[in-house]
Amino acid sequence: MAPTNARPPAMRRARPALHWIAVHTTAVAAALFFVLPFVFVLLTSVMSDAQAMSGELWPHEWHWSNYTEVFHTPGFLTWWRNSLLYAGLGTLLTVCSSVPVAYALAKFRFRGRRPAMMLVVATMMLPPQVIVIPMYLVWAQQLHLSGSLWPLIVPLAFGDAYAIFLLRQFLLTIPREYLESAKVDGCGELRTLLRIVVPMAKPGIAAVALFQFFFCWNDYFGPQIYAAQNPGAWTLSYGLESFKSAHGVNWNLTMAATLLVMAPVVLVFFFAQKTFVEGVTLTGVKG
């Protein structure tokens, strides 16, 4: 034992205990920072109109009916439907179109593979605002599809740079021997992809699908550009922003609506916690 560590026995026993207290006090303080906002939002969401504007923290009466009222505001259910459509269909298309591209980039040898990969990364880094104006003009003035979610969904059928990037990172980890042996068995590349690669890449695909679902569900900029002119095409994320002023309501109903938009994401998380955390790790650690 090094001399620096020679302390009186009592202190050496006290140190882990002090350490435990320090760590857990900090943890509780941090947890308050992360959790209290949810608590305040929940408490306010069941207050009466007048109390929501009073600054008091604890509801006098619990108005659970605020939630039914939110559901009955015009449009709320339509927003739900649209969000599900955008997120559901968008995720499906992204995965279907990105897997073959990622596979080719990860496993095929061809000239221009590296530049292609660099272009994928470059598109990934590009702020969406850079190209939105000409894109909007095409959708609105040539195709007359603004005021719907199609301008947001259709491009996802042509691969998403972020999804391609993540899937490629994941596919790189599949040993080449598996693929070679499949080819020896007489599988074409397409069958190799479907029979061998996709089952092996399930965790990666699941993570990418989850990311894409969350991205679409949370997207505000896209619906603001393309759906704004038609309230029938609004999504939850977009509708919520104007909820307070458009419906002339106060903080209580706004907070109830906020929780109702958060809920599905949180539910999905609890069901797919492991996939999700693995996915987040994938984005970083494999880099």
């Binding site: 992360f34 994320s237 998380f269």
Partner: peptide, 28 residues
């Protein structure tokens, strides 16, 4: 889980919630 959960809150909802929480006049 407690530390992670806020990351999942959609940006619009998180922002709406924070504007309420930090409202100068009546925010908690």
């Amino acid at each position: 889980t407690a530390f992670y959960l806020p990351y999942l809150a959609p940006p619009v909802t998180a922002t709406v919630a924070f504007v309420f929480l930090l409202n100068p006049g009546t925010g908690p």
